[in-house]
Each structure stands twice: as C-alpha cells, then as structure tokens.
C-alpha cells in the first residue's frame, strides 16, 4: 500500500533528521571517546602489549571499538527516540496515523541502525589515523555491521517502551549494555581467559559481534563467523518481531 510506503519513508526521514541535526549530542561524544580509547589503549598501553592473534594490539581492538560505538549508538538512538516520544507524547502523532505497526517498527529500527553504522564508520576513520587498517572480508564486515546495529536498535525499542523515566535509560546503558561490551572481547582475546570464564563468555552475544566484525577487518576470528552471523540474524528477526507485537499490543504506548 502506497500510504504505508510513503508513511514509512516520512517516519524514517524524521528519525534520521533528528539525530543528523543534533551532532553535538549524537556524533561528537563518540568521536571524543574513541580518540581517547585509541590514544590510551591503542598507543600508550598498546605499545607495551604483545600481538594478539598475530596482529598489533591497536589493530586488534579497532573492530571491537567500532562495534562498541555502533551498537551503543543504535541502542541509545532507538531507546531515546521511543522513550522521549512517549514522555512528551508526540509519539502519538505516529500512533494515530494509518501507518502499519510493521512500518512504525521498521522506521525506528532502520533509522537507529543507520546512526549506529555512521558512528561505526566514524570510529573506523579515527582508527585509520592511528594505525593502518585494511578490510580482509568486506562481505562479513558489512553483514555483521548491518545485523548488529539492527539487533541493538531492536533491543533499544524494547528498552524505550519499557522505561518509565530517564533513569531507566541510564540504568540500561550502565548495567546491561556496558558490561556486555566490556566482557565482549573488545579489549582482550578469549584465549587469554581461563577455561571456565571462556565458556561463560561464549554466552555473551557481544563476543560473536566483535569477532564477526574482526573477521571482516582482519580475516581472523575466535568463533565461527558463519554460525555467528546466522545466530545474530535469527536473533535480530526475533527481537524485531517482538517489537511489532509490543506495538500492536500497545505495550508502553496505549492505556
């Protein structure tokens, strides 16, 4: 139906314009953070750390930092946009429209994933100033970046619908997202861990994301890339389907 397609593009455009027009809130913070990460972990500490998986430490952490920036921003964008719209009730402009629930969810997820990918690219550009980086497996790089940003955008929607106030958003970031990222193999190799911790770490979805993107850049991975991609894709489809169900039921949206 053309109404739905036009409506979907209108909402997608609105959502993209929202973060594009506020670079101080959306792009400057990850820029500064990543310049600091590369300077401290890559250059200052990295020179004292041996090669991991056959690559210098700064190159080893680069894919992890890209994933960290991308998924954090995808999650933050979706959760903030939904929650802020609920808080100020302007999400009702969308809810009272003839857009299908699938289109609503699709536009929120896709726009948030877009922000994640833009931030991921920004981190890659910053990394390129600190070390020389190539792309060994472009297909895997693109595929993993698309899937992980879509997945965290979908998680962000659940968070935005669930939150009751702004503190809940901060809490999700501090107590759920950040631990997953820091224990997700961004800064260390799984091989460095004792067996038990290694087994536990394999339950963290972030391990597969970081290793997938690392595989795209460096051609090396500590887990099976194809299996990771398949599992992450299935998870993304499942969470997005949950989003549509939540919208249809009006969870957090209607009385």
């Amino acid at each position: 139906m053309s109404v739905d397609r036009t409506g979907f593009y209108a909402l997608l455009k609105r959502e993209v314009l929202r973060f594009v027009r506020r670079p101080r809130n959306t792009f400057v913070p990850p820029f500064i953070t990543n310049v600091l990460y590369f300077s401290v972990f890559g250059v200052i500490l990295g020179e004292r750390i041996n090669e991991i998986s056959g690559v210098p430490y700064i190159l080893f952490i680069l894919p992890g930092l890209i994933v960290l920036g991308a998924v954090s921003n995808a999650f933050e964008n979706a959760s903030f946009s939904i929650f802020h719209g609920r808080w100020n009730r302007y999400i009702e402009e969308v809810l009272t429209s003839p857009l299908s629930y699938r289109s609503m969810v699709g536009a929120y997820v896709l726009s948030s994933a877009t922000r994640g990918i833009v931030v991921g690219a920004l981190v890659a550009v910053i990394g390129a100033f600190f070390t020389s980086v190539g792309v060994a497996r472009p297909f895997y790089l693109v595929a993993f970046m698309v899937v992980v940003t879509l997945l965290f955008a979908s998680f962000g929607i659940v968070g935005g619908l669930w939150a009751d106030d702004f503190d809940d958003l901060t809490m999700m970031n501090q107590f759920i997202l950040r631990p997953l990222v820091f224990f997700g193999g961004v800064f260390y190799s799984l091989n460095e861990l004792p067996t038990l911790l290694r087994q536990v770490s394999l339950l963290n979805p972030m391990i597969y994301m970081v290793n997938g993107v690392r595989y795209g850049f460096l051609g090396v991975s500590e887990v099976n890339a194809n299996l990771s991609l398949a599992i992450l894709t299935a998870l993304t489809l499942a969470v997005t389907a949950v989003n549509v169900v939540l919208f249809r039921r009006g969870y957090g949206l209607t009385d």
């Binding site: 036009t6 209108a10 609105r14 929202r18 009702e92 402009e93």
Partner: peptide, 30 residues
C-alpha cells in the same frame, strides 16, 4: 486515516519547526 485529532493536551514534536512537524504528519498519512 479518516480522523484528524486536536487533543486537549499538547502532544507535538518539539524537535522540528512547526511546518516540518506538519509535513511529517501528512507523510505518515501517505
């Protein structure tokens, strides 16, 4: 699609100038 609502409580998008808010709303309706 057949309803236009002017609610009692203001529920307007505060990120954009009002003309753009209207354009977005029209867009949602195809």
């Amino acid at each position: 699609d057949r309803i236009g609502l002017a609610p009692q409580e203001f529920n307007v998008d505060r990120f954009f100038p009002i003309r753009e808010v209207l354009q977005h709303k029209a867009g949602y309706h195809g």
